[in-house]
């Protein structure tokens, strides 16, 4: 446990120094600025535009960090050979994987939380902090899921491919309902199975998309929040375990 804690702490500091984290954070802040400008241009939709743009900023900066850090971590470890010094110690590969994984997740959470607090300060319409928190949880879990899938893919794919893998899951996760719907509409058994298959092999990100004024004003039902929590945690666990199993067999050349 001491080793894992030390690994998470040092990896967190290492990732925090990565330029890409600050670029993505800056993109988020710039989009917040845009939301203010665009909002001020409209007459009645100011808060709606700010809310939509603000949540998009949160999502995009989180996705950027998750995709870039997740896709590059194995390549960077091999390149710098930092993993060799650590793994020569009484540290298992599973611990090493978890240390890196949890450090990026903590970093993602920290960045998303800072941006969310900032957004909360910007939005001035009547909304319950609980509803705001629900939307934040949905957004963070979506970003965490894409990071986790990319982090897992980096154990067996090159960085560029792992990045595309993450982007692919993001798009499929959002278009899942449409793919399933069109699969049914075509009447073809193949497309129907394809539509169904996508929903089995891809996390349902559509269900986590609460980034609208409607959800900020009315909240999300408890059942849906619970479903999203279990769905996300299941996928996080699955990708982490699968990643560990592959990383254990990997040659650290």
């Amino acid at each position: 446990m001491i080793a894992l804690r030390a690994l998470i702490r040092i990896s967190f500091l290492e990732f925090l120094r990565d330029r890409i984290v600050w670029i993505c954070f800056l993109v988020g802040v710039v989009l917040f600025g845009f939301s203010l400008i665009l909002g001020s241009l409209s007459i009645q939709e100011q808060q709606r535009i700010m809310a939509h743009f603000g949540w998009m900023a949160l999502q995009l900066s989180g996705l950027g960090i998750g995709l870039f850090l997740g896709a590059n971590w194995v390549h960077k470890e091999m390149d710098h050979q930092t993993c060799l010094l650590v793994l020569a110690r009484p540290v298992s590969r599973a611990q090493f994987f978890l240390g890196k994984y949890l450090s990026v997740l903590s970093l993602l959470f920290m960045i998303e939380l800072i941006l969310a607090v900032f957004l909360f300060g910007l939005l001035r319409f009547k909304m319950s902090p609980v509803f705001f928190l629900q939307v934040f949880v949905g957004t963070f879990l979506e970003v965490a899921l894409i990071f986790s899938l990319t982090f897992f893919a980096a154990t067996f794919l090159r960085p560029a491919m792992a990045f595309l893998w993450g982007v692919g899951f993001f798009l499929m996760g959002h278009w899942m309902q449409e793919v399933e719907f069109f699969g049914q509409k075509t009447g073809s058994a193949f497309y129907f199975s394809l539509g169904k298959g996508v929903s089995w092999f891809c996390p349902n990100l559509y269900q986590m998309n609460w980034r609208t004024v409607y959800f900020l004003e009315h909240g999300v039902s408890e059942t849906q929040v619970l479903w999203v929590l279990f769905h996300s945690l299941g996928w996080l666990l699955l990708t982490a375990v699968a990643g560990i199993l592959i990383f254990r067999r990997k040659d650290l050349v």
Partner: peptide
């Protein structure tokens, strides 16, 4: 290892402490 890379943002003592903790603290 050959050509090792260290977390260069750490001080020498922090680096050693990290390895101390990796071996159980």
């Amino acid at each position: 290892p050959e050509r090792p890379y260290y977390y260069d943002f750490l001080t020498a003592l922090q680096f050693l402490k990290f390895h101390w903790d990796l071996t159980g603290g």
